[in-house]
């Protein structure tokens, strides 16, 4: 049962990696990596039960927080690209594609 769940989660992680490699913009890649991290947390938890050593949960717990901090850190880095001269009054029409 746990082994099957592990295999399923590995498949899901592979699909998330496809988006990370294919993603046209840098945000798609960050999104995919974030999802990959969440899946890793779940995978570690299930794998701990699979091998009968639930001590792995501590690693999963830390991985949750590191995943969050990592995504926010990468986003701080990416946000530097925002143009400060145009503080984005942001009408929706400008962004529309036909």
């Amino acid at each position: 049962m746990f082994g099957a769940a592990c295999l399923g989660l590995l498949v899901v992680m592979a699909v998330a990696l496809v988006r990370a490699f294919a993603g046209p913009s840098v945000y798609d890649r960050i999104l995919a990596v974030n999802m990959f991290g969440t899946k890793t947390v779940l995978f570690i938890a299930v794998y701990g039960f699979f091998t009968g050593r639930p001590d792995f949960l501590d690693i999963a717990l830390v991985y949750t927080l590191i995943n969050f901090v990592g995504v926010v850190a990468v986003l701080r880095f990416v946000e530097k690209m925002i143009d400060p001269k145009d503080p984005s009054p942001a009408t929706e029409n400008r962004k529309e594609q036909a």
């Binding site: 913009s25 945000y27 995504v71 946000e79 690209m81 925002i82 400008r94 962004k95």
Partner: peptide, 18 residues
């Protein structure tokens, strides 16, 4: 994290298909 992601994308003018 998803709010941070969508905010950064929006402020960088990533085109949205609406």
């Amino acid at each position: 994290s998803s709010h941070a992601l969508i905010r950064a994308a929006y402020l960088n003018r990533l085109p949205a298909r609406l």
